[in-house]
Amino acid sequence: MNCKTIIRVRDLTKSYRLGDETVYALAGVSLDVAEGEFVAIMGASGSGKSTLMNILGCLDRPSSGVYELDGVDVSSMADDDLSTVRNQKLGFVFQSYNLLPRMRAVEQVMVPLIYSNALDREARAIEALTRVGLESRIHHRPTEMSGGQQQRVAIARALVTNPSVLLADEPTGNLDSRVSEEILALLQRLNEEFGVTIMMVTHESDIAECATRTVQIGDGRVVGDHPVEARRRARHEVAVAPPRASADATSSVGTITAAAPAAGSV
């Protein structure tokens, strides 16, 4: 794997004024993430990990410090430019899926492409849905899909623009453990086989062990940063138990492997 730095953060702070007091949500964070890493960001609630993710996701601006994404300083960019960065370099996966109501899966995945004025939207959306194993659910609406399927649509939407970094904010938080393992397995495969750089917020060490590196955040600072010694394979095989789910799981695994040479990496 190459060692190109994709995220470079130096002395990042985020402060809010609360009456006369200045409260620091981030009190000087420095962090480097290389291309192809799968970083789990851990920390208690209120530790600042969500604030860090919002800034890394260009949804919020730091109060001070440097944030370079793919070699470009984004900490002082104009709003429109940040939108373009979010569109082209970042992909988001949220705890609550955040799909648009009423839209079919393929339309959901096409939304980011609308804003980049891409031409072959439908083909690319179908390709992304195939990558996450949803080629049979292309025309389903959120209300017609399970939580795991909805989250996979969200992952397809995040991947469709071939972003530099995939940001996942507790992606398994709303899912039961069996489906969580499926999603984690999918993220692991995307990371390993397609080289997608992933930043994932979680507060469960069990889930963090699926990453290649964990970063501990506490009181707005990095309090621990180490590689995962014994990386855990997400047990997606567990999902094979019920017949219907087994079909789903195997098809998803099969597709990823099959699609791997054609899809290329980031």
């Binding site: 996701g57 949804l59 709003d79 429109d80 939108s83 373009t84 979010r86 569109n87 082209q88 988001f92 955040n98 799909l99 648009l100 109501p101 939304v111 980011p112 804003y115 980049s116 939407r157 623009t161």
Partner: peptide, 15 residues
């Protein structure tokens, strides 16, 4: 929320 999602995936203010 829809506005937030669209902004997150790259919609500019003018969009």
């Amino acid at each position: 929320r829809e506005i937030g999602i669209r902004r997150a995936v790259g919609a500019r203010q003018r969009d």
